[in-house]
Amino acid sequence: MRLSESLKATRTGLGPFAVPVAVALVILLLALLGPLAAPHDPLAVNLTVRFAPSSLVHPLGTDHLGRDILSRLITGAQTTLGAVAAALALVVALGLGVGALSGMIGGRTDAVLMRLCDVFLTVPTFVLALFLIGAFGTGLVNVIAAIALSHWAWYARIVRGLVLELKTRDYVLAARIAGASPAAVFIEHVLAGVLPPLAALATLDVGHMALHVAGLSFLGLGVQPPTAEWGVMINEARTFFWTRPLLVVWPGLAIAVAVLAFNQLGDALRDRLDPTLVAERGL
């Protein structure tokens, strides 16, 4: 039994994903724990130990204000991924609502909503986010709103396509013939087929949105110092790059590892949740 399960895991692609998935789960755990997992206060300034090298007390050293880098990285994970989670929740809600409405009703409603999506999709997401922050103002809440508004259209199109395919299934047609309303048909018969691919897509987007949050914070438009956040840490350390390059390397490495890990986690979820892919593999 164990051998067959191992072979099945390998065939479904989870074998190569085991390490990045484990890393993603560790990052999520650290983000959930936040300051509780940090060995020191991430905001505590101690100029007597500024630029301290790696040691047992400070495993990754300290920054220009004597703050523990490891503690700031751990707390920064909570800030960055918390913002990503909030943005994704808004994106999924908007995309699911607009896509479901467009796909289930069709007609002029579908045409108007899809043209609206086309308007948002014509502009690169980061550029659109910058424009929206310029309109809304800086700050973490506005960054979350800008990221959500610059990403929802793609989700709406995905949901619409899934709804158009699913609503032609026999059991859905039977429910409509029986007199069920479009809302009832969607909730009872279509939603279950939409959520799994949407969950995989959202997981794949975690790394992309983490780059947006960190990038906007680096530019001074998102999280503001002294709050611990990976983009803020890079921005604060860039002045000392040529003398203390590790101050930039550590948060940059954290961003890179998180992006790669969540991309792999999204791939693993897609392989597990995509019924077409599973059927093709004969599982």
Rank of each mutant, 00 (worst) to 15 (best):
Q78V: 03
D110H: 07
S150K: 03
A178T: 12
S181Q: 09
T138A: 12
V92R: 07
A129P: 02
S150W: 00
T80E: 01
L88W: 02
L164T: 00
G76L: 03
T125N: 15
A100T: 01
G134D: 12
R157S: 11
A87E: 02
V119G: 04
S181M: 08
V98P: 06
R108W: 09
A178I: 09
F131E: 00
L128C: 01
A93S: 11
L132E: 12
V123Q: 07
P124D: 09
A135S: 12
L121M: 12
T138K: 10
W152T: 06
G95L: 10
V91M: 00
G76Y: 06
R169E: 15
V143E: 05
L113P: 08
H151W: 14
A153I: 10
S181E: 11
I177P: 03
L164Q: 10
D118Y: 05
V119I: 15
G76T: 04
V98N: 02
T125D: 14
A86R: 15
P124C: 03
L116E: 04
A93T: 14
S102I: 04
T109G: 04
D110I: 07
S71I: 11
V92L: 11
F126E: 11
V163N: 03
L94W: 01
A87R: 09
G107S: 08
V141P: 02
G99C: 04
G95K: 02
A87W: 05
L70D: 10
L166C: 10
V92T: 11
V141F: 14
G139A: 00
I105C: 04
R157D: 08
A145F: 08
T122E: 07
R108K: 00
G161S: 05
A129T: 13
A135K: 12
L130C: 00
A178Q: 12
R160V: 05
A85Q: 09
I158L: 15
A93W: 05
A175G: 08
V98L: 07
D170T: 12
I158H: 06
V91K: 06
L81F: 15
V112E: 08
L149A: 12
E165G: 14
A85H: 13
G134S: 13
L116H: 06
I69A: 02
A180I: 00
L173G: 10
L73K: 14
A86C: 13
Y155K: 06
V163S: 01
R72T: 00
G137W: 08
G139C: 04
V98I: 15
A145Y: 09
G137K: 13
T79D: 00
A111D: 14
L164S: 09
G106M: 09
D118K: 00
L94Y: 08
G179T: 13
V119M: 07
N142T: 14
L130N: 09
L164C: 04
T138E: 15
T168E: 11
G106D: 05
I158K: 09
V163I: 10
G161T: 01
A85G: 15
G76W: 02
T125R: 01
S102P: 05
L173T: 14
A135N: 11
I158P: 00
L121V: 11
T80G: 05
G139R: 09
L90K: 09
